Amino acid sequence: MKWDILKVEDLYQGFFKLCRLRLSHGRFAGGEPLVVERELIRRGPAAAVLPYDPDTDRVLLVEQFRVGAIESPHGPWLMETIAGLIEPGERAEDVARREALEEADCSLGELVLAHEYFSTPGSSDERISVYVGQADLSAARSGIHGLVEEGEEIRTHVLPADEAFDWLDRQQVDTAFPIIALQWLRLNREMLQERWGSG
């Protein structure tokens, strides 16, 4: 089916950009195209990564304040994977590595793409690349990280993979990045231990 953008109106430019689109698109039932107006948050692509140590069978998660969860019954501090926006000219893998250093002081080895998806395509153009990254977490400790100039205060949690899966099952993890990464790891942990393990 065909679609066409008829008009774009910029409404707001801040950390994200908001615009209004007037567009037309074909109908499943056929006939004249449907003409609609929709607001679109231009957030752009992002990358997320779950560091995993196959030798200690531990993962690293981060916890930080999220304004979108301000009315959550659990509070706005969410358990997540490391993540960041992809700037023009950057590769998703490079962003995952950079953010791991900034948010958790964690160097990554090989990255495996778990999944790519649109986060909220009804209102945003954000597309996420989710990775699981090879990491040595044998000496890693929970701590506070992030870039002060970006208003970040990020607490890291290094924990056994089975404990992270338990957090997931008890809905203590309730954002898409870590849900997807942890579910993927649960299905592929043995493969990564054979591929990345030292013995």
Rank of each mutant, 00 (worst) to 15 (best):
M1L: 09
K2S: 07
D4F: 00
D4T: 03
Q13E: 03
Q13S: 09
G14K: 14
G14W: 12
F15W: 13
F16Y: 14
K17Y: 04
R20G: 03
R20N: 06
R20D: 09
L21Y: 13
L21H: 14
R22Q: 09
R22E: 08
L23G: 06
S24H: 13
F28Y: 12
F28S: 15
E32D: 08
E37W: 01
R38Y: 11
R38W: 10
I41H: 02
G44M: 01
P45D: 06
A46T: 14
A46Q: 15
A47R: 01
V49W: 05
L50V: 06
P51H: 07
Y52D: 10
D53V: 08
P54Y: 00
T56F: 15
T56L: 13
R58W: 04
L60Y: 04
L60K: 02
L61E: 08
E63A: 05
Q64I: 13
Q64C: 12
F65D: 07
F65M: 07
A69V: 08
A69H: 15
A69Q: 11
I70V: 10
I70Y: 06
I70F: 12
H74V: 13
H74K: 02
H74C: 07
W77A: 07
W77T: 04
L78I: 12
M79C: 11
E80R: 00
I82W: 02
I82D: 00
E87L: 15
P88K: 03
E90M: 11
A92N: 03
A92D: 04
E93N: 03
V95F: 03
V95S: 07
R97Q: 02
E99Q: 10
E99R: 11
E103L: 00
E103P: 02
E103Y: 07
D105N: 10
G109H: 02
G109L: 06
E110I: 02
L111S: 11
V112H: 11
L113D: 08
L113F: 05
H115E: 05
E116L: 15
Y117F: 09
S119A: 13
P121I: 15
S123E: 15
S124K: 01
D125L: 10
E126T: 11
V130D: 05
V132N: 05
G133V: 06
Q134Y: 00
Q134P: 15
A135P: 06
D136E: 01
A139N: 14
E150N: 12
G151W: 12
H157D: 08
H157T: 11
H157N: 10
L159W: 01
A161T: 02
E163R: 09
E163C: 05
F165T: 08
F165D: 02
D166C: 12
L168T: 05
D169S: 06
R170H: 10
R170E: 07
Q172P: 10
V173D: 00
D174H: 15
P178M: 04
I179K: 03
I179D: 01
A181R: 09
A181F: 00
A181H: 02
A181P: 11
L182T: 09
L182A: 04
Q183R: 10
Q183A: 10
W184C: 01
L185Y: 01
L185E: 11
L187F: 09
L187Y: 12
R189G: 06
E190F: 11
M191D: 15
L192D: 00
G197M: 06
G197P: 08
S198K: 02
S198D: 03
